[in-house]
Design a protein around this nucleic acid. Structure first.
Length: 721
DNA sequence: GACGCTCTCATTTTT
DNA sequence: TGAGAGCGTC
């Protein structure tokens, strides 16, 4: 048999991993070492060489994007038989199991998946109902508590033993009530998907055995991101017989704040004693310099599994460090560099600006607009998270499962139809007493005429509306169901009345939803109706942030969302103590190490050229703040860095207190603070403005570029104000 | 029920 | 600084 097409384009280590004997495998795959390739080729190897049926394969990822990509690449290698294997995220696989075994999992057939926002609303409502002081107990906290309990595999009854303080007591109470409501309404949140799926196997060994026999080979991507529950789930599935291959990089674990446990990588070796460990250390992405710097940085972390990336590619340019005067100057500098990059004939989409927190994007955007650089920001509201979309989906949810109280509450008065808070409160109270869904309660209340006439008529109009919608769409194909609901619910009309750009965008989104329904093809009929499948799809796969723009754009995103991507030109902006590493992380145990890993992730995104930027002072929370440059910069080998030291060079010769100086170029024109000014005769400089002692000065600064550095050659005090 | 005022708060985010 | 939530008023 010819196996060259599988092995030829792999290096020794990759080949070793791909063609390893049928045992448990732990692949430590450094950044840019061909991790996905190894996974895909291993699957191909199993199918073509080891003659494993795709039916016996399970591949697990964390994001839908990764799952899709893997599926496509496998299909390219082995053809359509790839469709026989299960590939998906932990959540989508768990969901699939629960649909198949809803009875054993104690769920209703039409159970709905709710996203984090739905969950938040539900919790908030519960807390209000319970009359909890919102200043003292925040819904966010409660949400975090509930999810982290579930992520540890704990139910309220498990946590009940550990109540020692008021906080836990209150949280537990909310947790309990939350569970009751979800169970009653047939709602399943993200953590619940995993926990239920776990319990399904734990409590029904026969079902577990069935899947154990089926999935003889399990492959897990980004294993360093698994939480306790996901790992337990995998262990349960693997049992003694199945073989697991995990691929991960402990140095790129940046989600511990979300429950991910790097420890799972250590545990794996203990829990699966015959595990073979293979390290992929050859990096195909970055230059030698970037890699050397990244390696040095991450070596400051303790408790690593240990691995050192190397590359056969060239040294490349040094890493440029730019000390900006302030955030505006930083943004301007980045925009300038990007402009130059573009003028050299490169594409904008090849550069990424990475930052620690979303708030940083604003100044960058301003600078890009000014410089006329098109950009794209990742993050923000995703398609299925938009209010108008969620409203429509809530109608559909309620129709497909009438017990869905969360959906009921969302739309009972959206668009407004005269059902006020009082009516809703009354319904809630009644529902609580009778242990019924809001829908059933509302039916009863209208029947028994328990409300004032006006409220009663509004309520029964609403009930009729839902019933009519349900009848009308029963036999329609999915896209028409969606369209019908959008119009007949009054939502379309409602958003039509919203003025301005916003309203138009919303209508467009609603139309887009119909299109999405048209294009929606459920992978398999796991759900009992296409509508249910579509609703789940919407919850599990919240969609892209923006419709794909094909124009050439600079890419702005947080460091977290840059994971898994690569760019020829990368800027890390805001390399300041307190911002990166973030203040809040410094207060947590092991917080600093995770920040360092985040920096490592950021640096290793860069292929050719990397810039590290920090601002001497920055506007934050409405105040100007000065921070030292990030310790991460000082942890890098100086030989890898080239500083662009404008600020230091200026401040030294200035006899004025730098905090009270205003720099402007020669002509007395209007310039913005932070603006970079070039003057034919006097060179170039940056305008800063600091309030301090009260004294202000107007200065002219001349610069000269010497090698890769900017040096101040002379300055003149033009005028003292 | 819409609008506007005030208050608070401010990492990272997939599913 | 500025977004979002809550609250009071018309």
């Amino acid at each position: 048999m010819d196996i060259s097409h599988i092995l030829n384009d792999l290096n020794d280590k990759q080949r070793e991993a791909v063609s390893a004997e049928l045992t448990n495998l732990q692949i430590l795959a450094g950044a840019g070492s061909g991790k996905t390739r190894v996974l895909v080729y291993r699957i191909t190897w199993l199918i073509e060489v080891e003659k494993v049926s795709p039916f016996n394969l399970l591949a697990v990822t964390f994001t839908n994007k990764a799952a899709h990509e893997m599926h496509q690449r496998i299909e390219k290698m082995v053809g359509l038989i790839a469709n026989n294997m299960w590939i998906g995220t932990f959540h989508s696989l768990a969901h699939r199991l629960l649909r198949a075994h809803f009875k054993e999992a104690n769920l209703s057939q039409n159970f709905q998946v709710i996203d984090a926002d739905d969950q938040y609303r539900l919790i908030k409502r519960i807390m209000r109902d319970a009359g909890l002081d919102e200043a003292k107990w925040s819904p966010k906290q409660a949400q975090w508590y509930i999810n982290s309990q579930k992520d540890e595999g704990l139910r309220p009854k498990d946590s009940a033993e550990n109540v020692y303080d008021e906080f836990t007591e209150v949280m537990l109470k909310i947790f309990q009530r939350y569970e009751e409501i979800c169970q009653q309404s047939g709602l399943v949140d993200f953590s619940e998907l995993l926990l239920r799926a776990f319990e399904l196997w734990r409590d029904h060994p026969e079902i577990c055995l069935h899947y154990r026999k089926r999935f003889k080979y399990i492959l897990v991507d980004e294993f360093q991101d698994t939480n306790s529950l996901q790992y337990e789930w995998l262990k349960l599935l693997a049992g003694q017989e199945s073989k697991i291959m995990i691929v991960g990089d402990d140095d790129q674990s940046i989600y511990s704040w979300r429950g991910a446990r790097i420890d799972n990588m250590h545990s794996f070796i203990k829990d699966f004693p015959d595990t073979k460990i293979i390290k992929l250390e050859q990096n195909y992405r970055s230059t030698g310099t970037i890699l050397k710097a990244a390696n040095t940085l991450i070596s400051h972390n303790n408790a690593r599994l240990g691995k050192n990336l190397w590359t056969a590619s060239q040294e490349g340019d040094p890493i440029a460090v730019y000390a900006a005067f302030n955030d505006i100057d930083e943004a301007r500098f980045i925009a300038d560099q990007i402009k130059q990059w573009q003028e050299q004939g490169n594409r904008l989409s090849e550069c990424a600006i990475l930052y620690r927190s979303n708030a940083q994007s604003r100044v960058l955007e301003d600078a890009f607009i000014q410089a006329g650089i098109p950009y794209r920001i990742y993050g923000g509201l995703r398609f299925f998270e938009r209010a108008e979309i969620k409203d429509t989906l809530a109608y559909l949810r309620l129709i497909s499962q009438i017990t869905d109280d969360a959906a009921f509450e969302r739309i009972i008065n959206t668009p407004t139809r005269g059902i006020g808070l009082r009516t809703v409160d009354f319904l809630r109270e009644q529902a609580k007493q009778t242990q019924q869904s809001l829908w059933a309660t509302a039916k009863q209340v209208t029947h028994l005429q328990l409300l004032p006439a006006r409220a009663l008529s509004a309520l029964s109009n609403f009930l009729n509306l839902i019933e009519n919608l349900a009848n009308a769409i029963q036999c329609l194909p999915l896209p028409e169901q969606v369209e019908h609901v959008i119009h007949q619910s009054g939502l379309y009309h409602h958003y039509q009345n919203e003025k301005g750009e916003k309203g138009r965008a919303r209508l467009e989104n609603l139309e887009e939803l119909v299109t999405a329904a048209k294009q929606f093809e459920p992978e398999e009929t796991i759900a009992n109706s296409k509508l249910t499948a579509f609703l789940t799809h919407a919850a599990l796969e919240s969609g892209e942030t923006q419709a794909d723009s094909y124009s050439d754009c600079a890419q702005l995103m947080t460091l977290h969302s840059a994971k898994g991507l690569e760019f020829p030109l990368v800027f890390l902006a805001g390399m300041e103590e307190g911002l990166f590493p973030h203040q809040m992380c410094l207060e947590e145990a092991n917080g600093l190490e995770e920040e360092r890993r985040l920096c490592y992730v950021g640096m290793t995104r860069a292929m050719k050229k990397l810039y590290l930027c920090y601002a001497e002072s920055r506007f934050l929370h409405g105040k100007e703040k000065s921070q030292r440059s990030s310790r991460f910069i000082s942890e890098l080998p100086p030989s890898c860095l080239a500083e662009i030291r404008m600020r230091t060079q200026i401040s030294q010769p200035l006899s004025l207190k730098s905090k009270s100086a205003t720099l402007v170029p020669i002509e007395n024109e209007k310039y913005q603070i932070g603006q970079y000014v070039k003057h034919a005769k006097f060179g170039s400089g940056i305008i800063i403005n600091r309030e301090g002692s009260g004294a202000k000065a107007r200065l002219q600064i001349n610069f000269e570029q010497v090698g890769s550095k900017w040096l101040m050659t002379e300055y003149a005090d033009l005028e003292t104000l």
